[in-house]
Amino acid sequence: MTSSQPRTVERTNPVARVVLYAVLLSLALFFLAPLALMLITSLRPTEDFRGQSIISWPGAWSLYAWTKAWGEACIGTRCVGLKAYYLNSFMIVIPAAIFSTALGAINGFTLSKLRFPGSNLLFILIVFGVFIPYQAILIPAAQLLGKLGLLNTIWGLILVQSVYGIPICTLFFRNYYASIPDELIKAAKIDGAGYWTIFFSIILPLSPPIIAVTLIWQFTAIWNDFLFGVTFSSGASQPVIVALNNLVNTTFGVKEYNVDMAGTIITALPTLVIYVLAGKYFVRGLTVGSVKG
């Protein structure tokens, strides 16, 4: 004869639920308000700003600011809009994110599963690179790129962003791989598997969550980076984030705030799309391996 204990069902207090939803809604409105303001301002025609506040409801709606920011706005002395610099950013971000992620995966696997004398010290030294401020490496990096003939080129920015991203990628992968049982690696070694066989056949198939996290992190960090872009590039090789700064600070005649707002949204669009479409994978990848048992 078995005895069963009655379950206790927790009921949420309706008042507490209303308060929770009210707080969440207030926070959402607080963070979305600047974006909504930018969007509304970008849809106002230039004539709508004469005699009116920058912050006001449009008297008319127009896509003029978007078309000008994309293909006609003057950026310095080049009136070609942001589209000419969009490709530069993708040419920098994609290879740099892939390269730093790949090296981070290899480093993380080596430092977490193939321990050797001094591996912990090496890991500490690599992670120390995460805390080195950008400003501390500008001069030596510029000197190195100059000697390599890569200063003011897209290839130079790819190299700098890739190298600077290796420490944080290594930290992500090393912590993730630490949760993988060592018995898997030992069993593979007993079966005669080598380093690369273990990495490609065992480790990588278990890595999609952390790969997603690292790629999203690197894409966002590199796309939004301004300091490296403005220091190591010039003219037609500049990334879009630098071009946006030049667009906002280039004025001929009347200041067009609607064009500035449209350009800002256009520049931020790739990162917004990534977080909307892949945000759940980012959160899921961060939480995988955080709880054992």
Score class of each variant (00 low, 15 high):
251 T>N: 03
245 N>W: 13
101 T>M: 05
117 P>W: 15
81 G>S: 03
14 P>D: 06
72 E>C: 02
48 D>P: 10
139 I>P: 03
284 R>L: 07
146 G>Y: 06
210 I>L: 14
49 F>T: 00
87 L>H: 06
229 G>Y: 08
215 L>A: 09
55 I>L: 12
166 I>L: 12
203 I>L: 14
282 F>I: 04
144 L>N: 04
13 N>L: 05
236 A>H: 13
42 S>R: 00
206 L>A: 15
175 N>M: 08
7 R>E: 14
164 Y>P: 01
29 L>V: 11
83 K>G: 10
67 T>L: 01
162 S>A: 08
29 L>W: 02
166 I>H: 01
266 I>C: 03
273 V>N: 07
233 S>T: 12
5 Q>T: 14
134 Y>D: 12
47 E>C: 00
93 V>A: 03
17 R>C: 01
225 D>V: 00
155 W>Q: 04
251 T>G: 00
160 V>H: 00
164 Y>S: 02
292 K>R: 07
133 P>N: 06
274 I>E: 06
90 F>Q: 05
288 V>L: 13
209 P>L: 15
144 L>M: 06
256 E>Y: 05
282 F>Y: 13
110 T>W: 00
103 L>H: 04
39 L>D: 11
9 V>A: 13
241 I>N: 00
35 L>A: 02
90 F>L: 10
130 V>L: 05
207 S>V: 12
287 T>S: 11
178 A>E: 11
159 L>D: 01
256 E>K: 03
26 S>D: 05
138 L>T: 01
9 V>K: 11
79 C>G: 03
47 E>Q: 04
251 T>L: 04
18 V>F: 10
278 A>L: 12
110 T>G: 06
31 F>L: 15
125 L>W: 13
155 W>A: 00
153 T>I: 09
227 L>S: 06
196 W>M: 04
179 S>C: 09
115 R>I: 12
70 W>E: 04
235 G>Q: 04
134 Y>R: 02
112 S>M: 08
291 V>T: 11
124 I>A: 11
